[in-house]
Amino acid sequence: MKRVIIAPAKYVQGEGVLSFLGEYVKVLGQRPVAIASPSVMEKVENTVVESLCQYPQGIRLERFNRECCRSEIERLQAICQAAGADVLIGIGGGKAIDTAKAVAYYCRIPVVVVPTIASTDAPTSAVSVIYTEEGIFSEYLFFPRNPDLVLVDTRIIAKAPERLQVAGMGDALATFFEARACYRAGRTTNAGGVTSQSAYALAELCYQTLLADGLKARLAVADHTVSAAVENIVEANTFLSGVGFESGGLAAAHAIHNGLTCLDVCRARYHGEKVAFGTLAQLLLENAALDEIREVMFFCQSVGLPVTLGELGVSDVSEASLMPVAEAACAKGETIHNMPFPVSVEAVLSAMLSADRLGRLYSEQGGRVKALRMAACLL
């Protein structure tokens, strides 16, 4: 079996690197178009325009309409083609970035990715997650190559809401456990080969970085500051997780996330928040060691990731209400079938219910410990 590793052509991270955007873009094209949501463009427009001021015709800025769906991709594709764009810059969160990658692919031009949040590993990957206009998962769109440039300005990312950084940790959390499942099963990854030792090592480093720096980074971004821990977590959320999942493989955690998008109440929750619960469910599905499950559970609680379905907005935790989620997670072609054993709908349903029950148990115990400590302080 062949081993394949794929990654972006160039990855640049650090405070203030957005001001160097023009320097990096000029080697890719001369007629740039940038897409971003209005709120994102308001924050970065001056820096982007100033950085690209050497272009005689300037840069064309286009509004992203917030959903990575077929109609939005086609709309922006027509705009880029009419403008004669020869390089596309996607600025913003996961959906804006995924849309930019898809538009650039159909226009056959280079793509530059500028994430303004570290909530997903979309920036480095050669795949876009396509949704319906209503926000329901539709399909994966795979590309022949990864982005030409990923530019990550940690000064901008640190100004984003704390919850977004935490959601990125939830997405990154699945990387090692899904890569491990694919490695054990010898499954073909998104990169087109089995999990290599290098990809597995990056996935494992991603997990260890989360454990070491996750809480410290959360505390720093709460004050909108950039620390060494923040730099490490941004790299884990973006690069380690991106290369790790793509060349290491996806398994049950992301499939369960996709199933959860069937529930209206879950659509307001971030991708990484749902993936975090999917990771816990995967560990129950594979009957992982309790110590490992406990470590993941405690990490989630320390940074503020959901460990119960209730924390995802699901009030009806019953077999009947969760059966459609389990069925969607086990659909033909879903990544859950990369697990190193046959997976049934019933097993996934049981894993989700068990993960929820275990999450509630640990949450209740944590609440009792906090109450005892508070009472001791008052004595």
Rank of each mutant, 00 (worst) to 15 (best):
G249H: 11
T195V: 14
T308C: 07
G193N: 02
H254P: 00
H224L: 02
R269A: 04
F177L: 13
V303C: 03
G186L: 03
Q301V: 01
L280G: 09
L260M: 12
D223Y: 06
H254M: 07
H254L: 04
K216L: 14
F245R: 09
I233G: 04
V303R: 02
E286I: 11
A222H: 10
A185K: 15
S315E: 13
A276F: 08
A288F: 05
C182V: 04
E235H: 13
S302L: 06
G310P: 00
D264N: 10
L285K: 09
F245G: 12
L202Y: 13
C262Q: 13
A203P: 11
N190C: 11
V243H: 09
L205N: 13
G278C: 00
V234L: 07
V275Y: 06
L205V: 01
L219N: 09
L284I: 12
R218F: 04
F277A: 08
L284M: 15
A252L: 13
L211F: 14
L290I: 13
V307C: 14
C182N: 14
N190K: 09
L210Y: 01
G248R: 03
L215D: 12
A172N: 08
T188S: 03
L173S: 09
S315D: 15
R187G: 07
H257P: 03
F177W: 14
S196H: 07
C206T: 04
L250R: 09
A252F: 12
G193V: 07
V226L: 11
L283A: 11
T225I: 13
A276R: 00
V307F: 06
F176K: 12
E178S: 11
A172C: 06
K274V: 00
S227K: 10
V303G: 02
G193Q: 06
S241K: 00
A252R: 08
S247Q: 10
L263T: 08
A201C: 05
V296M: 05
L215W: 08
A201E: 08
L263C: 11
G242L: 09
T188A: 05
G186W: 07
T261N: 11
D316E: 15
E204C: 13
Y200F: 15
A253Q: 09
G304I: 06
Y207D: 00
G242C: 10
F177S: 03
R184L: 14
C300I: 03
A172K: 05
F298P: 00
L260G: 02
V230M: 07
L285I: 11
L305E: 08
N258L: 04
G278L: 01
V234W: 10
E292A: 13
G186F: 02
N287A: 15
H254I: 05
N258F: 05
D213H: 13
T188I: 15
T279A: 03
G272F: 00
P306D: 01
V307N: 02
D223P: 00
V226F: 03
N287M: 09
E273V: 04
I293F: 11
R269Q: 08
Q197A: 10
L305W: 05
V296K: 11
N287G: 13
A252K: 12
A203T: 14
G310F: 10
D213S: 12
L309N: 06
V314N: 01
D264K: 13
E235K: 15
R184Q: 15
V221C: 01
V303D: 05
E235I: 10
K216A: 14
T279L: 12
K274T: 12
